[in-house]
Write a protein that binds this DNA or RNA. Structure first.
Lengths: 168, 168
DNA sequence: TGACATTAAATGTATGTACATAAATTTGCA
DNA sequence: TGCAAATTTATGTACATACATTTAATGTCA
């Protein structure tokens, strides 16, 4: 039930082998934990890969959204709309990118409530360097072949299909 | 590439249908995002389910570890060892459980560096109530059948197999 | 014994998430 | 026109993660 993440990160093995509580109730429970655990594993690998560049994952993602817009600006509302998690706080992530001179913030002249956010030359250069170093490829699912990846996508889509959030 | 979590939470659909950037580079990239995304989806469902009980997920997990030890105490070191993420801060999560009178902290008489942490009667009662209300089952992978769940476990195990963390 | 290393927990700092609220601007309509 | 509602961003609080450092107690060994 409870797993030591860093141990597995360094010495990958089947999830049973790291479980302290003896067994899972059933394969469903195992899959549930396995899913959360594998996602953490991927995220930690990514975070470690980005660390040498002084970026966190959310900061990297926002930079990429901004590059997608470049040379047009993005507003905070656009960033929120495109981020993985809608409720996270784009304003403060942009604060940190601004401190590092990777983005600029200017009041939108057409609508003074809004803020135009633009990636800087330094921001573009940093993204390019990260991509040229192959940081993204390092965290790919290289252990799976094409058929397996398609299977996985089907299963994950199915998990989220056909039901509503209970009690809301 | 970037997905609106809360929309999907309320209206599950295939992951392509929520993507703002037009397409994935390939099925591998899609599976990567799909995995992170589905795990967030499960976690958010769980967090929402625990909210009425005034617990966060890490707090709930630590309570369960403590019940597993009960009536013996656990040390902070034992909690860290059994938690999903070894580097998270068990001390401060125990702080919050202690404020809610769900656990007690006493200096270990045999080793005054260590702290004995025990679940209280109120803590045990809360766990029982949560489980009787079926909160755990609500977040199961009910959309999959037995064969699919086994397939999923195999694929997830395979993702983490056979390589080391690059550059560490 | 006493100096030094080791261990266990707590604390500090930076970041991010989740959620509520505030502040400024714009919109819309009586 | 003028005032309420809506929009856009920023801020505040609580909690958690990640990582470094501190504090206290114990262990080791010359």
């Amino acid at each position: 039930m409870y797993i030591n993440l860093h141990l597995i990160l360094l010495h990958p093995m089947r999830i049973e082998d790291e479980i302290k509580q003896p067994i899972f109730r059933d394969d469903f429970q195992k899959a549930h934990i396995n899913l959360l655990f594998t996602a953490s594993w991927l995220q930690l690998r990514q975070a470690v890969a980005f660390k040498p560049y002084g970026l966190t994952l959310p900061q990297f993602n926002i930079l990429r959204i901004l590059r997608g817009q470049h040379p047009l600006p993005a507003t905070v509302a656009l960033l929120i709309d495109r981020m993985l998690d809608k409720t996270s706080n784009a304003s403060r992530i942009v604060d940190r990118l601004e401190e590092k001179k990777l983005v600029t913030r200017t009041v939108c002249p057409a609508n003074r409530r809004a803020v135009d956010i633009r990636i800087t030359v330094a921001g573009l250069a940093l993204l390019e360097r990260i991509e040229q170093d192959g940081v993204l490829n390092a965290s790919d699912l290289t252990q799976l072949n094409d058929a397996e990846v398609q299977q996985l996508n089907g299963l994950l889509d199915k998990i989220r299909s056909g039901d509503e959030l209970p009690g809301r």
